[in-house]
Simulated assay, not measured.
Amino acid sequence: MWADKIIFWLTPQTSSAVAGLLRSSVIYDLPMFLAYLTMIPGMAVFFIRFETDFARSYHDYFGAILGHQPLDTLYQYKREMIAAVARGLYAIVKVQSVAIVVLFLWSQDILVFLGISPHYQALLEVNMISVGLQVVLMAIMSVFFYLDKRRDALNLAIVFLVTNIVGTQITIWLDPSTYGYGLLFSTAITTLIGLARLNQILIHLQFETFMQRA
């Protein structure tokens, strides 16, 4: 998550010295800070859905395995777990999308109210989409950790890191009008890969669970 910020801090044309080795990027830090504030609705849904609904279905499923419940019962709890994941992701996307659309309509007025140049508007809007996707990505990672898929979580983190570095560096080489699109590309690609892998894991959940315990 910090790769793009570090690149902007270390690039001379996009940053300035603050104190000693500490640097800041005025052109990037401010819209990014404002964009991260927009993830509050999505994070609220994340904690409500995944730390309650999904956590409950997760404990029911693995409790049934430890309790030697019939296979039909396991399939029922598996369906409930998948439904909980789907509801959680849908709720995050819905709430975060509404927040982004509303803030898109008022982004220029918000910047003027805060005394910030309207030139930051395009970068702020791109960053808001990136941050919204990061909430979905965090939810996917959370499911991976619940299911003890640490290797998948690590692989997804590596994809995020590499694509964030490459995408951000390319925008630095191109033009200031492209700033922010590196992070957007990174979060979009990583989220799609994460969703595909999560779908695969949930489909074969029984097989992978018992193979791990064998």
Rank of each mutant, 00 (worst) to 15 (best):
R87K: 08
Q206W: 02
Q108H: 10
G180P: 02
L71W: 11
Q108W: 05
A157W: 11
W2Q: 12
F46I: 00
M43I: 09
F144Y: 15
D29G: 03
Q206P: 00
L202F: 03
V135C: 06
Y146C: 02
G180I: 05
L123M: 12
S16P: 00
V95F: 10
P176R: 07
I82M: 11
T73Y: 08
S24C: 01
A139K: 10
Y77F: 15
I201C: 03
G167H: 02
T187M: 11
A44W: 09
I158D: 03
G115V: 05
I172C: 00
Q169K: 03
I48L: 05
I203S: 04
I27R: 09
D152T: 07
K149R: 13
S16E: 13
F104K: 05
L22Q: 07
T163N: 08
D60S: 13
E51D: 15
A35Q: 01
N127W: 01
L34S: 02
S107R: 06
D53N: 13
H68W: 02
T178W: 15
Y90C: 07
S107I: 08
N127P: 01
G180L: 06
M32I: 03
A122P: 00
F144R: 07
V143H: 06
F62C: 03
H204Q: 12
V143K: 06
L192I: 15
T11P: 02
V143M: 07
D60A: 13
S57D: 14
A139P: 14
L66W: 09
H68E: 10
H119L: 09
Q69I: 02
K94N: 07
I6D: 01
V131E: 02
Q212R: 06
F46S: 04
M141Y: 09
L137D: 08
I140K: 09
H119I: 12
F210H: 08
F50L: 10
V18I: 15
L156F: 11
A214S: 07
F145R: 11
I48N: 03
M211F: 10
K5E: 06
K78G: 00
I27G: 10
T11S: 14
F185R: 02
F207N: 09
T209N: 04
A86H: 09
L105S: 10
L137G: 13
M211T: 13
D72G: 05
V136G: 08
A84R: 06
L184P: 03
P176I: 09
V131L: 03
T191N: 05
I110C: 06
L184W: 03
